[in-house]
Design a protein around this nucleic acid. Structure first.
Lengths: 206, 206, 206, 206
DNA sequence: TATGAATGAGCTTTCATTCAT
DNA sequence: AATGAATGAAAGCTCATTCAT
């Protein structure tokens, strides 16, 4: 009877939630170990310790699992990035604060390059993908930051500026992690900082 | 006799060449219509009006066909871009010339957005892919341009600057074409121009 | 409830076992009717009344099915042969007991000449094939028999003798069944008996 | 014109003959290097330096090429074996002459074990195959030998005896070359000699 | 709810053979 | 006689998804 109670302890929703998490974790692992091509539903189910049929109780199809894995990653990334933005919000935008932000981003991306590679190189993207949604969230974050610091003095459309800056920094950082060019990490950060700073200066000056 | 000559005109290499072209064209079409996932060798063969077996007389495997389609696209892109660079080489780097270059790039990418989407979003990339090779070709082009214009005055590592600028502009332009943000095209070009110009100015000043 | 129990009786292992048997039987049939070349996995699946995909749930590849068919045959053969050896062990080796053994072997091989033909003529053999393993099992059987009857008096290496005798008798018997020479069956048995007997006599005498 | 004459020197039949030989040689090489599975007509044509289409001018299908390769091998084997028989015909059948014959056979088979393996293990045999025809030729040879030496005294059916002896010795010798058992070569020859000799003695005595 | 056996269309690739030139 | 491009059926095998239990 205590066994029964314990089993019933976790209500339906929680059980379901836990199951979803387990599947996502399994998807993450399989994606990491075998890439997108090798990530078959059967393999994910096996990694999750459930039957392939059960998978479809929680996810409508394979891609929705992958999407959820991407979401977890973007959530973690967003948390890190917004923390940096929060810090940056405290002082004025200086080359140093820009540099810190970039460094943090690079560190974040470099934490799991293998997953990053799968996410960026192997996953079929699409405008309504989770990755695109993530970019938009960062757009908002940066727009907020810009509005906060350039309040009134912004001679330029903040949305467009954010949009451009996000895609700029994102691709430079991702490419650096994945393509490993023969350029020193510090140099990349320096140059990117220089470019962004020059642009921001121009914005307030203009 | 002229008929004979004309018929014999395409004896071997030309016939073979024509076949290769037909297959690439078919690959291009199928890629466009059914995406990478749907681009099966049988489908490409059918689109080319040949048998699946014939395909393998001209290409060793499926990916080599796709790679060739990509190569065609990158070659065309490279031709356009290098033409702009050649023009830009004639005068000093001004906001106007930067702007023209960006405009041309955007136009080039915008010419076949559906193919661009397949190439960027669906194709499995990798550091040794044709797309990556293309980026490196543009790196070289830009590095040359920078060396030409900043000769002596460059306070910064030209290779790193090229690498960053290429990835910056590429992603901004591609994202603009594929994600169609609610930002005016002119604004994107303006801002990108501003950023790049500010950075270049900084380079010579620093 | 008995119905339920009966239905549940074959829960997993038994169902699986039955499926394996069905596939092996289908493999056997297809092998018989279409030969090794015509025994495609799709054909075997169809003969088993299942889908090609199901086949691979029970067998890793085509050859493993064929191997299993061979194993069934060799197991049956081994059972018959070892039964004869057991009988022969009871008395001393006489021309009559040798003759009985040979007759039994010939009968066994002659039971399914079509399958024998496929196994011997069409299957790609190799030193590590099931057929080779079977021969080695008979080697052991005969060596045991020889050691039992010639204990002490064997002037010859028992292993080598077994090895030679097995290959001798095997090929003569198989060739007789498959090539159907215009020689009377009794004559073949007589001569083979004579040869083996003479050799055995020589052994103890030598 | 001398050129013309030279070209015409080799009449049609000879040219054709030479072509056939070239194809057979190519078939032999490909069989050796890639096995029966890998011996595609295209590969044989390429090895012969001709087009696949030309192959079919000289051979009706793939198997006829293979059959011809087998024939060449059996012809060479037959030549060697009949030479030994001719020598043996000079004196009476002694253990020594039997032994010599067996040794020669083993040597002959051991000369090209890789080809032997392909011929024996990979080729689909059949009662009307060239290998079977070869065996019959050896049957005749041995029958002749037996008739010569046992003339009058043969208490046994010579055809049956030949048939059995040929299949016995063939399989023992082939198995020894291909399976490489851990038995000394001399021991195998000794035992086989003993068996055959005992049998032959029995024949004349009986 | 969970299972996992079953599905079957579809994949890439090969190859004996043909036939227009 | 010779070519070699072209064929197209067929192979072994995978995998997202379903469904009877």
């Amino acid at each position: 009877m205590p066994a029964d109670r314990r089993r019933r302890r976790m209500p339906q929703q929680d059980r379901s939630r836990a199951m979803v998490e387990r599947i996502i974790a399994a998807g993450h692992d399989v994606l990491l170990e075998r890439g997108y091509e090798g990530a078959s539903t059967n393999r994910i189910a096996q990694a999750a310790g459930i039957s392939p049929g059960s998978l479809y109780q929680y996810f409508p199809d394979k891609d929705s699992i992958v999407a959820e894995v991407v979401d977890r990653w973007t959530d973690a990334m967003h948390a890190r990035i917004s923390r940096v933005f929060a810090q940056a919000l405290e002082g004025p935008p200086t080359p140093l604060s820009v540099r810190d932000t970039l460094l943090e981003l690079l560190d974040a991306l470099d934490e799991n390059p293998r997953l990053l590679r799968v996410l960026i190189e192997e996953l079929p993207r699409s405008p309504d993908s989770r990755l695109a949604a993530f970019e938009r969230r960062i757009d908002d974050l940066l727009a907020m930051w810009l509005r906060f610091h350039l309040r009134g003095r912004a001679a330029r459309p903040v949305e467009a500026v954010s949009w451009i800056l996000v895609r700029t920094v994102e691709n430079v950082a991702v490419s650096y992690v994945l393509d490993r060019p023969v350029i020193d990490r510090a140099v990349v950060v320096d140059e990117l900082t220089a470019m962004v700073t020059a642009y921001l200066r121009e914005m307030t000056a203009g």
